[in-house]
Simulated scan of single mutants.
Amino acid sequence: MSISTTPRLFAMTMIAVVAFTGTPQLAAAATGDGSPADSNIKYFGRWDTRSSSAYVSEWAGAYVLIGFTGTKVKLKQRNAIDFFASVDGGPDVSYKNVSGTVDLTPAPLPSGTHTVRVSYRPVAGSYHGDAVFRGVALDAGARTVAPKMPSRIIEFVGDSITVGQLSSKQALTAYGWLVGERLGAGHTQIAVGGACLYPAADGCIGMSSRFLKTGLAADAPNWNFSKYQANAVVINLGTNDVGHSVTSAQFRDAYVTLLHNARAKYPSATIYALQNFRKRYVTETQAAVKSVTDAGDAKVRYLNTDGWINEATDTVDKVHPNDAGHRKIADRLAPLLG
């Protein structure tokens, strides 16, 4: 989820509103001890849990939510990383280039039960931080507790606009995060800068198939979609494909593939195809929607985004929304998902 600030990394976004049904954990999880496999620790987004001592999320917008007792909480890191942490619903505090055991409560909290949320800066572009969660350290005698969970999760999948590239806090000031927070939902952004919809011959990541993966690489493990089930999906794709010589037919067919993949993994979801903000491949997007609805999928719809943002005032570089632009998108999108 970090991202290159190169303006040429354009945008696409896909969003999924999901119902939380589980959290990655190992059978031998030591509940309450603060280790990554502790079943009281809740993971939002796609986390690679193959190592019991180090959980990794490569997509933007993933975070971990932890309830705990005591007066202190410290994050266990490996090598240097940037991240944001919010304690008890407070502001997201920025930690830059930190490693080892990081104290998130320099002033002790009152005795009682608390929560902490941690979101890592994603590794992408020229940024190579070590986004590895190794658990938390608490006061002697303190333990983790299961935090209150939202009734649904919103999953945003896309590229640099979904990441929040060039906004002040990247994923945290991107419209996906804002929509989730506004609706009181869990949320994550399955996104990386520069991605395409169609897997172009020059190597551009094709989200029509990469949507199925736990991480960024083509050989990453397939994601276990039983971790949560989407009940709404909103797709906004196509800004980058133009720069990779993707043809009209290739784009349309890749869009149909993504719609089919989303439907296969989220059988009950309503799927919204969002007109991308650069108005690229609009006819092809509409054709893809018509193809699946004509085939009998009545829960796929097209969303017109004309007028949502102003290129001159609401973007940093005529492509990537600034903070105000992301807020305007969230203002339009949140009511549609509410």
Results as ranks from 00 to 15, higher is better:
S2N: 13
M14D: 11
V18P: 00
N40Y: 08
I41C: 07
W47N: 05
D48C: 07
D48G: 03
T49V: 15
T49A: 14
S51R: 14
S52G: 09
S52H: 06
A80M: 04
V87Y: 04
V93S: 09
N97I: 02
T113D: 09
H114A: 09
R121P: 00
A131L: 03
A137S: 15
P147N: 11
P150T: 08
S151Y: 01
R152F: 08
I154Y: 07
E155A: 14
L166P: 00
S167I: 02
T173A: 11
G180Q: 03
L183Y: 03
G186I: 00
A195V: 11
A201Q: 08
T214H: 04
D219Y: 03
W223T: 03
W223N: 06
Q229R: 14
V233P: 01
I235C: 11
T239R: 01
T239K: 01
N240L: 06
D241Y: 07
H244P: 01
S245H: 15
S245F: 14
V246L: 06
V246C: 03
V256H: 08
L259C: 11
L259F: 14
R263D: 10
I271F: 08
L274Q: 13
Y281R: 01
S291I: 13
V292K: 07
G296W: 04
D297G: 07
R301D: 12
D306W: 03
V316Q: 11
V316P: 00
P321R: 05
D323R: 04
D323E: 10
L336R: 15
G338D: 13
